[in-house]
């Protein structure tokens, strides 16, 4: 079995596609440098990322695929799942071998897998649009709306443009506590940021509630009681609620903090 190894950059993956055609070698798997060697590996080829090669593949790809399919591939890439490398690789090999637009051939398992994984990532992105909760904090005399998230896939980069458009007249920041990076919007531009490890702004993966002003607590409380009042008691259905609003988001959602606000 032939295995390609690469440095886990998108350019690296495109270089792998280029090399495969140049060498006429068709690996069964494309793995990152530090994945374990699978059983029955007889041959390994190490891909050296080459921006020029990647550029050529990228251009060809953009010529051959509709935007929808290009977006799907981007989403699959941001899934960060180990299988994404082989999947995108096989998809591109098929694309360049057939000379047709394969992106709607959903009878093909790889094409369908790309579509489905892209959909999962896109759902996760949508979850952020739904469940990001901003908390107003004072930062050096300024009001900043701050939120923490921990998405399943790396979707924060895919969603910040949405928040930038919507919250254009307030300073805000969203921080991915799982991947330890975030974005800060200062009314003009969006900057990639990290947090000082010493800072205690975060507590247990969420914002340290001690930083909130009393006013902020009031709004959380209002929102909590509003959502409670809206519930139709005759129709209570916690299972349905959890299905639409998975538990993993609850620690960021004040409307679910019964212990804090019910007294």
């Amino acid at each position: 079995m032939l295995v390609f190894r690469y440095d886990e950059t998108f350019e690296g993956l495109l270089t792998a596609v280029f090399d495969a055609f140049a060498l006429k070698k068709w690996p069964e798997q494309v793995l990152s440098r530090h994945d374990v060697v699978p059983l029955f590996t007889s041959e390994e080829y190490i891909v050296f990322t080459d921006d020029k090669k990647a550029e050529r593949v990228s251009t060809a790809m953009k010529k051959r695929l509709p935007n929808i399919a290009l977006n799907q591939l981007t989403y699959v890439w941001f899934s960060e799942l180990p299988e994404r490398s082989s999947l995108i690789f096989r998809y591109l090999i098929k694309l360049f071998k057939t000379k047709k637009d394969i992106s709607t051939n959903f009878a093909d398992p790889d094409v369908l897998a790309v579509k489905q994984l892209a959909k999962k990532v896109s759902n996760e992105r949508h979850y952020l649009m739904m469940f990001v909760r901003f908390n107003a904090i004072e930062n050096q005399g300024e009001k900043v709306y701050f939120a923490t998230v921990e998405p399943r896939y790396n979707v924060l980069p895919l969603v910040v443009a949405f928040f930038k458009d919507r919250f254009a007249d307030q300073k805000w920041a969203i921080f991915d506590t799982k991947r330890q990076f975030g974005y800060y919007f200062d009314l003009k531009q969006l900057d990639l940021v990290t947090l000082d490890e010493q800072a205690d702004l975060l507590f247990d993966g969420a914002i340290n509630q001690n930083y909130l002003s009393a006013e902020e607590r009031q709004f959380q409380k209002l929102w909590y009681h509003y959502c409670q009042a809206l519930t139709i008691k005759e129709r209570i259905n916690p299972k349905l609620q959890r299905q639409f609003m998975p538990k993993r988001f609850w620690k960021h959602l004040p409307e679910t903090w019964h212990k804090t606000f019910d007294n």
Binding site: L230, L240, Q241
Partner: peptide, 24 residues
């Protein structure tokens, strides 16, 4: 889309921000 200087945008299909105890 957001209009300059304003707050907010409306988004095609509408976004649910929460679900009540009865799942709405």
């Amino acid at each position: 889309s957001n209009i300059k200087g304003g707050i907010g945008s409306a988004h095609g299909w509408g976004i649910c921000h929460s679900f009540t105890g009865d799942g709405r």
